[in-house]
Each structure stands twice: as structure tokens, then as C-alpha cells.
Design a protein around this nucleic acid. Structure first.
Lengths: 111, 111
DNA sequence: TCCATATATCGAGAAATAGCGATTTATAGA
DNA sequence: TCTATAAATCGCTATTTCTCGATATATGGA
């Protein structure tokens, strides 16, 4: 969990919205029957909702994944992305611990 | 409180550290006697601890201030910066509300 | 008024990011 | 094997950010 990468990934309204959308699958079209049990949303659906190009959405999802905020799973030709809840919680906890009120050492901030 | 600006300001280890340093004045040299009662730290001390140029620290503090995360107060030739605790709390609350687990609408995210 | 000092602002070059279309890769199915 | 499709990667230009030194501004004191 690289705080810089996570903050960078989140410094974009569309990428933040994607994280929010992924909370609830009802934000997306129903999955193909064969994927009814897969946990996550395929890139195409996210792209459609975000309204950016295919290459841009792929880059966005890579950034979110590199930051650890989402996880991906490939099923056939489709890549499904889902929130990485423990990582998101860790990120929020660490950010709050660092910059929030209360004692915390700045030594914990990695370059 | 512009979330984008705040996240951008925080996507830099030195700026995050400054916010942490400002929690505790013992991180800085003792104030001039005449400023013993002033709440905040003057730019020069922050610059010295951060180890960046004078113009850079001024820019850093402007970014943090523009994001609302710090407030400033001028006393004579000195500008004192201090944490804006309510704003920091608001920022963390909003970020947690948005991207944290639990129901929240993505409509709340401003472009 | 004149000077010293603290900070802000300006201007610039380097580096990073944004977003796109084109291309490549991987996979399912005919 | 060949084709179609989903997604990733590449290459590009425009924009933004980074960081600095130089300059400007403001203020207190001689």
C-alpha cells in the first residue's frame, strides 16, 4: 500500500467514482449469465459508465490496481475488477492516522 | 473544501509530513519571544525542516492553504501557518464517506 | 527615508500525468 | 486454424506539476 500512489490514483473524480460504483453491482448492466457468480465488474461496463476511451479506462483500472485499491480476476476474455476492501480500509486508516488529529510521527511517511 | 485539490496537495510526502509536523510545535525551533503566543509556525522554520528552497516551501504552503488544510496568519514580517483541524476532519470524513465501505452515492463527487 | 529580512510571485526547464487512437495480446468459438 | 472480441500496451501531444533561482512585495527598524 503505497500512500503516494493511492493518493495519486484518487486525485481524479472519475477514478474516485469508479471506486464508489464498484460498491454496488446494480450500477452496472446485468452480467452475462455465465458470470453471474463472479465478484466484480468487467472493464467494458466500467468504461461505458465512465464515458472515457477504452485505453483510458484500462489505464485508470491499472492505476487503481497498482495502488492496491482494487483487485482483478480474469475470466475468459473478460477482466473483472472489484474493490479491495481491506486495502481501502488500510489506506483510510493510515491516512487518518497520519494527517488526522492526534499523535503520529511524520517518520511513518515513506518517501 | 475541494477534494481534488486536497488530494493533490497530499500526494507528496513532504507536504504530508508538514501537516504532521504542524501537529506539534516541538518539531520546530522555539519561536521568537515576541511570537510565543502565536498559534502556528513561520515559513522559515518549516522550510528548514523540509529541506527545500524558499520558493518551493512557499508554493507548498500555498497549495496546502488553497486546499484548505492549513490557515495562515501574518505577524509583522512573518507568516505563521497552522493546521485547519475542522477542514482536515471534514476532508477525512468526506473521503471515508465516499470511498469507504458502505452506501454512498457517486453523485456527491464533484468534477 | 533607507536598509535588511521574510515571504510571495514570476519565469523556466524537467518530469510526470492525462487522454486519445492505433496496435498488440489473449481467449473463445466457428 | 481463422475470426471476433475484451483488454492491455504503445506512441503521441497537451497539460500539469515540480523545483529552482531571480525578482517583487511587505514590513520593521535604523
Amino acid at each position: 500500500m503505497d500512500m503516494n500512489e493511492a493518493l495519486m490514483a484518487l486525485d481524479n473524480p472519475i477514478r474516485r467514482r469508479i471506486l464508489v460504483w464498484l460498491k454496488d453491482r446494480s450500477n452496472f448492466p446485468p452480467p452475462l449469465p455465465e458470470h453471474a457468480d463472479v465478484d466484480g465488474v468487467c472493464v467494458g461496463y466500467i468504461q461505458e459508465k465512465a464515458g472515457v476511451s477504452q485505453s483510458t479506462i484500462s489505464t485508470y483500472m491499472s492505476l487503481l490496481k497498482r495502488a492496491g485499491l482494487v483487485a482483478s480476476e480474469r475470466h475468459g476474455r473478460f477482466t473483472f475488477y472489484r474493490r479491495n476492501e481491506p486495502a481501502i480500509r488500510t489506506f483510510l486508516d493510515r491516512l487518518g492516522g497520519e494527517i488526522g488529529q492526534g499523535g503520529h510521527s511524520s517518520e511513518d511517511i515513506d518517501e
